[in-house]
C-alpha cells in the first residue's frame, strides 16, 4: 500500500515543451515511483484520455489522468514545467503545472475516494495556488487537510 501523496510526488520537468513530452515525463516518473507497472501503457492511457476530452483546466493547470490496469496504486503527482506547455484549457492559458493522477482499475476504494476529494479541492483557488507555487511543506499541508 502506498500513500496517495508523498513529498517526492512533486516533480520538476525542465525539459518538456509539448504535451506529448510531458506525458512521457509523467509516465516515466510515476513508473519510477512505483505507482504503475508499465510506463508505456500508462502514457498511452493518458494520451487516450486526453483525446476523449482535454483535461486542461484553468489558471495554468491540467489534470492528466487515466484509469488502467497497469496502475498499481492511487496517486497524485504535481508536475511543474519550466516551459509553459500548450494545452487546450478552459481559459486558453498555457499550462505550467500538471496534477496527474494514477487510478487503479480495482484498487483500494478508500484511496480512490481520496482522489475524488482531491479533485473536488481543485475547484478551490488556495489549494490550486499551493500545488502550483507552494513549497513542499505547503503542498503537503493543503493535501493533508483534504485527505485527513
Amino acid at each position: 500500500m502506498k500513500a496517495v501523496f508523498k513529498p517526492e510526488h512533486i516533480l520538476l520537468d525542465t525539459e518538456s515543451k509539448t504535451k506529448l513530452q510531458a506525458f512521457a515525463f509523467i509516465a516515466s516518473h510515476v513508473k519510477a515511483l512505483g505507482y504503475v507497472s508499465d510506463a508505456k501503457i500508462y502514457e498511452a492511457g493518458l494520451i487516450d484520455r486526453e483525446n476523449q476530452s482535454s483535461t486542461g483546466f484553468t489558471g495554468g493547470i491540467a489534470i492528466p489522468h487515466c484509469k488502467d490496469a497497469v496502475a498499481l496504486y492511487a496517486g497524485l503527482f504535481v508536475v511543474r514545467f519550466s516551459h509553459p506547455i500548450e494545452w487546450e484549457t478552459m481559459d486558453e492559458q498555457l499550462v505550467n503545472t500538471a496534477v496527474a493522477l494514477s487510478i487503479p482499475e480495482d484498487g483500494d476504494d478508500s484511496n480512490i475516494r481520496l482522489l475524488t476529494k482531491l479533485s473536488r479541492s481543485m475547484m478551490r483557488k488556495p489549494f490550486r495556488d499551493a500545488l502550483q507555487k507552494g513549497d513542499v511543506n505547503q503542498v503537503q499541508d493543503v493535501i493533508a487537510i483534504v485527505i485527513a
Partner: peptide, 17 residues
Amino acid sequence: CATGIAHTYMAAEAFEI
C-alpha cells in the same frame, strides 16, 4: 465523466461552490 474520478467531482464541487 469517462474516468469517474476527476471531472465528476470537480463539476460537483463547482456546482456546490
